[in-house]
């Protein structure tokens, strides 16, 4: 009799886990941990002038129209700068989700530029934990103005500019992202001996999402002292990202005219304090060229 009770009890203890499991069948499979990557830290691959943490996705072509009007302090005669325009037409293409290339042609000194950007760390939680996203960008630009002094010896290399940039950032929450961009701009030729060929700068950029489709972006680029002539200023830009279906509209105010690194970092003359501010916009339109393989 006692034995029977014991047997029953053991049986019950055997059965009971199975009964309890009925509450949550999926728990039987155990927790398979996955890696959760942070996405959409910015709405597009630029903050305003600076490259952002985001890449163009694999197989996607992103057509960029970037436009800066003249400065506000030009007054009513030029309707506060709207009579003038500086434009960069460009295209970005994602080779993989982490590697992208891009090109552009600017009216600013008739400059062509091309770049490669690679995201080597991705912010993630879960199975793989990584607190930040990090990317490297290298670009080359060539200005194609007619030589100012055709009579002297002019070298093609004098037209070339290079930029190397590291992007380190974190999406702290759905709404807030912060990014640091240490940058080196190399100019083969500079105007005076006092100016450095290699210019070091630190960009800081952030965004605050105001709603699902609108974000406030700001960026400031601090050029380390004693590298440039005194008339050059640091670029400060502030603006909104407005996202519709396939477009992102970036509307902003900035004291930078050019839209490639050497212009807005090393040759920037606009000054916020005297109204040397441009209204500008970037329009991004994406086209899926190669469809991803869906498992």
């Amino acid at each position: 009799m006692k034995l029977c009770t014991l047997l029953l009890l053991t049986l019950f203890s055997l059965v009971s886990p199975a009964i309890r499991a009925q509450d949550d069948l999926l728990s039987l499979l155990g927790d398979e941990e996955t890696t959760n990557y942070a996405t959409a830290s910015f709405k597009t691959n630029r903050v305003i002038n600076l490259h952002s943490l985001e890449n163009t996705a694999a197989g996607v072509f992103d057509f960029k129209i970037s436009h800066r009007f003249g400065t506000l302090n030009q007054g009513a005669y030029d309707i506060f700068g709207l009579d003038q325009a500086t434009i960069r037409l460009g295209g970005d293409f994602g080779i993989t989700n982490r590697l992208m290339v891009g090109y552009g042609r600017s009216t600013y000194e008739k400059t062509y530029d091309g770049y490669v950007k690679y995201k080597f760390l991705r912010q993630s939680t879960g199975k793989r934990n990584m607190p930040i996203t990090a990317a490297l960008m290298a670009s080359a630009a060539v200005q194609t103005l007619k030589w100012q002094n055709p009579d002297r010896d002019n070298y093609f290399s004098s037209r070339l500019y290079y930029t190397f940039q590291l992007m380190l950032g974190r999406k702290f929450s759905d709404a807030f992202t912060l990014q640091l961009s240490p940058t080196l701009v190399h100019r083969n030729l500079v105007a005076t001996k006092a100016e450095k060929n290699d210019v070091l700068a630190l960009g800081i950029a952030g965004r605050i999402k105001l709603s699902k489709r609108i974000a406030l972006n700001a960026e400031y680029i601090y050029v380390l002292p004693d590298q440039l002539a005194p008339q050059f200023t640091n670029a400060l830009s502030i603006g909104f990202d407005i996202e519709t279906g396939g477009h992102v509209f970036q509307l902003h105010f900035t004291n930078a005219t050019g839209m490639m690194e050497r212009a807005f970092i090393a040759e920037n003359t606009g000054d916020w304090t005297d109204g040397g501010i441009h209204f500008g916009f970037n329009i991004s339109r994406v086209f899926t060229v190669f469809k991803p393989r869906i498992e």
């Binding site: 999926l26 039987l28 996705a57």
Partner: peptide, 27 residues
């Protein structure tokens, strides 16, 4: 998607991670 079916009583459960949905267009 993960799923468990208990054939003894018909209980059925599913779970799916939203981030694992794949689209043709990345955006």
């Amino acid at each position: 998607a993960t799923s468990v079916l208990d054939a003894s009583n018909g209980n059925l459960e599913f779970a799916v991670l939203i981030k694992a949905f794949q689209f043709e267009k990345a955006l």
